[in-house]
Design a protein around this nucleic acid. Sequence first.
RNA 1: GGGCGCUUAGCUCAGUUGGUUAGAGCAUUUGGUUUACACCCAAAAUGUCGCUGGUUCGAGUCCGGUAGCGCCCACCA
Length: 890
Amino acid sequence: MSTEELSKAYDPAEVESKWYKIWEERGYFHADVNSSKKPYTIVIPPPNVTGQLTMGHILNNTLQDILIRFEKLNGRETCWLPGTDHAGIATQTKVEKELKKNEGLTRYDLGREKFLERVWAWKEQYGGKIIKQLRSLGTSCDWQRERFTMDEGLSAAVQECFIRLYNKGLIYKGHRIINWCPKGRTALSDEEVIYKEEKGHLWHFRYPYADGSGYVVIATTRPETLMGDTAVAVNPADERYAGKVGKKLILPIVNREIELIADDYVEKDFGTGAVKITPAHDPNDYEVGLRHNLEVINIMNDDGTMNAEAGKEFEGMDRYVCREAVVKKIEELGLLDHIEDYTHQVGYSERNDVPVEPRLSDQWFVKMKPLAEPALKAVDDGRIKFYPERWVKTYRHWMENIRDWCISRQLWWGHRIPAYTCDQCGEIVVAKGMPEKCPKCGCTHLTQEEDVLDTWFSSWLWPFSTFGWPENTADLKAFYPTQTLVTGPDIIFFWVARMIMAGIEFMGDIPFKDVYFTSIIRDEKGRKMSKSLGNSPDPLDVISTYGADALRFTVIYIAPVGQDIRYSNEKCEIGRNFANKIWNVVRFRLMQGPVTSAKPTLDNLGTLRPDDQWILASLNQAIKGVTDGLANFRFNEVSKILYEFIWSKFCDWYLESCKPVFNGGDAAQKQTVLRLFDYCVATFLKLLHPIMPFVTDELYHQMGFATADDSIMKTEWPSAISEDVLNSYGATQAAEDDAEAKFELIRAIRAVRANYGIATSKALDMVVSPANDEMHEFLKRDEASFKALVNAGELKFVPGYQPEGPSGVAVSTAATAYIPLAGIVDLDAEKKRLEKQEAELAKYVGVVEKKLSNEKFVSKAPADVVAQERAKLAEAQEKLARVREQMKAY
RNA sequence: GGGCGCUUAGCUCAGUUGGUUAGAGCAUUUGGUUUACACCCAAAAUGUCGCUGGUUCGAGUCCGGUAGCGCCCACCA
C-alpha cells in the first residue's frame, strides 16, 4: 500500500512506460501452448514494413487489445500474434523512390541482387517500426511469436500452398490481358486498380471505306491505340450499318486494311455505334478479337511508351504524348469528325498512382471459383460472423462474381514463384527448389521463374502460416482456428475473403469465427487521413500529450460500430479527463485511510444506506452491461456505460454521499461503507482495464488490491452479483427508484439555490414536506447524506408543512422542500418558476390522459405498459396538485 | 448502372428487438477556494429526429417514396 499521497493530477507518462515493461518482462503477454485453458487467439493484421503508426492502427489495435485483455481476465489462454507484411509492391516502390531521390538510380541500374540487398537493409532499418510503436499503446502482443511474411517458415508455407494449388489444377499460367502498371512495370490484380472519375474526351474519327464509298465514324477515348486497331465493330442489328458489314476500311495514318465486323458486344446507342477494335490494348476488344480471329498488334512497351509497331512517327513517345500526336495527325488528314467532352472512369494503379494499361502477357492465375464456394458458404451459414453484418452483402457480391486472381508480379521484392522452365523443351516444373532434371526430356538446365507473387498470396495464409503450417505444430493445434479478426472493411477482398478461402482449403477449417470491421478514422472535416493531406496526427505525439489510456478510451468512445469517425486531438481530452477522474477517486479514497481488504467482497457488509443499495444495484448493471457489450463487440456502448457509471453515478452521487459517513459516521457504518466503496473501485477498475490498462493497473496497486509482484491482469473478470446477495442488501429496483426520487428532490433544491445565486458552500435551513409516508420514512433513513448533498443547515421533515414566511420552494415527486429566504426571495421569480413547472406538468398530464383515454391503447397495449402509464399519470397529477397549491401563495 | 451508409441540440455524435417528458461530450449562460479532481462542481438554455406517405393503440426506431452528402462495385468504346 502506498503511503505517499497521490498527486492531484494524473500524469500518464511514467506510469505507462513502467507498466508496459513490467508486463512484458513477466511474460504476461506470452501464450502457453500447453495451457489447459481454452485458447483465445487473434492474429494481428500485419502492418506493412514500410509503415508508420497511424490513427487507423490505433483504433484497430486498441480493439484487439481490449478483446485480448477481456478474454484473459475471463480465464482464456490468450494469444495475440503480432508481425509484419513484406508488402511487395508497396515496399519495392518506396525503396525505388528513395533510390531515385538519393542516388538517381533505378532498380535496373543496380540489378536484382543488389537491389534486394537494399530492400532488406531497408526492412531491417524500418521494418517493424510500427510494431515497436504499438508498445506505447499498451498492446499485449505475444512478442515471442512475432512473424514476418518473408520469414523462412512463412516462405515455405507460400511454396507449399503454390505447389498444392498447382497440382490441384487451381493455379495455371495463362496468356491474357491483365492490368499493367507502366511505372512499376508489373501486372496487378483487379483489386489493385483504383477507378477515378476523369474528365476526358470522346474523339470521333472517320475511317474511310477502302472502296471510297464514304467512311464510318468511330468514337474512342484512347486515340493512341489506333495503330493497334485490327477491325471496327458494329452491332449486328444496327440498321445504319446494314449491308456494310464485311466491307474493308482503311485504318488512317497506318493505311492498313481492316474489316467492318458485327458483334453483340457493341451497344447501338453509344457513340456512333461503331467501335474500333484493338485486341492488344483492351480486354473487351481482345475477346472480340478471339471471336473473329483478329490479328493482335501490341504497340506499346512495358513502360507505357510506344514501340516500333506504332510506327516510326510515334515510336518512343509516351502514351499520352502519342494521344495528342495521333489526334493532331487525324485532324491534319481531315478525318477528325468532332470531339465531345466525356467523363469516365479511369483505372489507376494503387501504389504508383498512374493509369493502368491493359496489357497482353503471360501471367500466373489462381482459379478462384472452387475456392470461393465453400468460403461463401461459411459466411452464409453463420460459421463466420461479420460485425456489422451488412458487410456480408459486399462479401457475397464479390464472391459470387469472383474472377481468377492474377498472382504473378514482375517485381523483385517478394516470394519468387517456385516454377522452373526447361531450357530445352519448355516443360514447366513446379517444385520446392530447382529440380535436378526436366522430368520430360531429362535436360538438366532449367530456369526459375523470374516473377514474384502478389503480396496477398502470403498474407492469405497468415492465420496458420504464422503458427508453423505446413508442419503440424503444437501451436497450430492449440491456436488455430483463431477467434476474432479485427480489420478495416477496405481489405475485405484483398485479405479477409482470401483468408477464409485459404483457411478452408489448407486447414479444412475457417480461420476465425468473428470478423469485426473497424471504423475509418477521418479528420474533423470528414476527410480520410492521409500523408499527402498532412491531416494525420502522429499518434506518438498524442500519446505523449494525453497518454495512451486517454487515446484508447477516446477512440473507443467516439467510434460507434460500423460508422466512420471524425477525429481531432482535442477529443482526447475526454479520455484524459476520465483517467484523471478515476485517479482522483483513488486519491480521495486513500485519504480516508487504508483499504479495507486487499480482496474486497460483499460478505457480511452490514446494513446498507439507501445510497449504498443504489450504487450496488447500479454497479451490477454496469457489470452486466460491460460484459455483454464486450462479448458482442459493442465497444462504444461499453465505454459509455463505464463513463456514466464511474463519473455520473459513482463520483457525482455516491462518493458525495459517503463524505458525511467518512467524516462523522459511527465506526461500524464507516467500515461498511468503506468496504462497499472498495468493492466498487476494485470492480470498476477491472471492468475498465481492457480499455485503459495502464491507469487501472497503477490504481489497483495504489489501492492495495495487488502486491508489487502482482497485477490486475492476473485477476478475474467480475461476475454479476447474484439476485440473492442484491436482495439481502435491499439493492432492489424499489430501492433504486427511491434513490432516484431523492436525487430529483436534491436537484430541485439545488436549482432553487442556483436561482438565487447562493453559493453551494453556504448552508441553508430547510423544511421538507414528504409527498407520502413511505418517502418520509425513506428520506429520514439517511438524513446525513441528504443534508450534505443539499448543504442544509437545520433540516426538518414536516408532513403537510405550511411556510410561515417567504420561501424558495422545490417541488419534486418525493417531497416539497421549503427554504426560508427572508430578504432575498424574489416573489416574481418564484412565481415564474412555479408557473413554468406547472405548465410542463400540465402538458405532460394532458398527453398521458389522452393516451389512457384511448380505448385502443388500453385494450391493445401490453398490460405493464398501461400500468406504467397510469402510475406516471398519478405521480404527475399529484406533483401538479402540489405545484398548484404553492402557486396559491402568490 | 447496381449496392451500401449517413442526414437527431450551435458543433461532433449516441439512441439493441417500436413503449418514461429524445440523450452525451464540446461550445454557450449563471454561480462556485464544501480539503478527490478547475483535466473540477452545481445550475440553466438549446431539437418540426432531412422531406413525404404508410403500418400500428403507439414510430427517431418498421415499410414505401423522395432530396442532399459520402463510400464500394461495374468491360458502354
